[in-house]
Amino acid sequence: MSLADRLLINRLKARDEQAFNEIVRRHGDQVFSLVYRMIGSRPEAEDIAQEVFVTVFKTIDGFRGESKFSTWLLRIAANQCKNRIKYLARRPAAASAYEDVAETAGSSASSLPPPAQGHIDAPDVLMEAAELESLTQAAIAALDDEHRLLIVLRDVEELSYQEIGDITGLAEGTVKSRLHRARMAIKEHLDKHTR
């Protein structure tokens, strides 16, 4: 952990509001992205991602700096996602936690990065990108939560195997073999729905 990170954590332990804001600014996008791709519903993802940071603030005294702060933070996020997935699975009316998947096709065109100056993508290109995003999200949703987490950590968030091992507590070999199965399942899903 860098000296700057250590100082920031110490300020957070002293309940410094500015340090907390800085941490949310630095890690907010990554936490939200992880949670959104794990859960598939924007309102649920917002709720969980907020809860992650509240938990960080409440339990920061227990962070001893043995791992990177981001690893500790993502472990909290991953655990909260798993708990919510279990909770949603028990709720009969919550079968549509992935309700946003269908909705994404219509809405995510507006959330795509803005086009470079002087270059505007044709609507059909935007729609195609939105459809691919929706399809890929549905493929992730079809995985069980363990495989889903590995796919999101490695292929969406682009973390190293070492970091994934630290977050999940799995050996590198296990991460690799499960990840391969998850990737093959994603490929099969996309093959099936695009041919």
Partner: peptide
């Protein structure tokens, strides 16, 4: 998959 990052 790498294009699925979602900002807060």
């Amino acid at each position: 998959l790498s294009r699925l990052k979602k900002p807060a």
